[in-house]
């Protein structure tokens, strides 16, 4: 096992020196069958080239920080096993469709603005006093939105979405899935506040149902489902009598 080696081809970009990203190859030991691509990047950072920049945090598919393109597919690098690619070289690049700051680090400002725009929190018309107790929910009420609440904001869905790649005004899969998560929450009363954003031409209607967002989602959120269901719901609100009521 100690003799096995793997080639990592990482995208490098230094804004002060490079006019465009370039590729750099690293030949490193494949020291453990449980080694993931993030381990390989950390090995490079610690033993070979300390200048390689990338984001990571939890190492267990929770924080959503280490999303990158692995052999052209958006992946959490902490969840991409080297053994699944070996003996071929592994190309690691920054997430598609986002501006590149350095090496494997993308600018996520656009995503943050979009996330904020859909007001991802429980909105009440009137807050109840604390003494009134908690907002109780049945299991069925929780099941309505549970799937969409699993999103970890890793942005893999944005990297996989050609619609966002062609038009970055598109609100995007994760933001719409999160909006649906709150709109389906029995405690929430903020649908009308979110509708102008999600019902906009750059909201759900920009999506042409490629479906790749759901394919790459590491948490099974299925943003494509959230978007199509929102399209149907907003249409029904428009078409049905009393459909626009709260």
């Amino acid at each position: 096992m100690a003799d096995k080696r793997v080639t990592i081809q990482a995208t490098r970009y230094d804004p002060d020196r490079d006019s465009a990203p370039r590729m750099q190859s690293y030949d490193i030991p494949f020291y453990d069958e449980s080694m993931v691509v993030l381990d390989a990047l950390n090995y490079i950072k610690n033993h070979v080239d300390g200048s390689l920049s990338f984001r990571w945090s939890c190492r267990m598919g929770i924080c959503g920080s280490c999303g990158m393109m692995v052999n052209g597919t958006p992946k959490l690098t902490c969840n991409a096993f080297v053994r699944d690619y070996w003996p071929r070289a592994i190309h690691v690049g920054p997430l598609n469709n986002f501006p590149l700051i350095r090496d494997l680090v993308i600018d996520m400002d656009d995503f943050m603005h979009k996330l904020k725009s859909i007001k991802p929190w429980v909105i009440r018309k009137q807050e109840l006093p604390l003494g009134a107790g908690e907002h109780r929910q049945t299991n069925q009420q929780i099941d309505e939105f549970r799937q969409f609440s699993e999103c970890i904001n890793c942005m893999l869905c944005y990297a996989a979405c050609p619609v966002y790649g062609l038009n970055n005004e598109f609100l995007g899969p994760a933001a719409i899935a999160l909006a649906r998560r709150y709109n389906l929450d029995s405690r929430d009363q903020g649908l009308k506040e979110r509708l102008p954003v999600i019902g906009d031409a750059e909201g759900v209607w920009e999506c042409s149902f490629v479906g790749e967002c759901s394919v790459v989602c590491p948490k099974g959120v299925d943003p494509a489902k959230a978007i199509q269901q929102t399209k149907l719901d907003t249409t029904m609100r428009f078409v049905l009598p009393y459909g626009n009521r709260d």
């Binding site: 501006p99 590149l100 700051i101 600018d107």
Partner: peptide
């Protein structure tokens, strides 16, 4: 993160 920094746009 991107403000004031030269970014590469894909």
């Amino acid at each position: 993160e991107g403000q004031g920094v030269k970014e590469y746009r894909w």
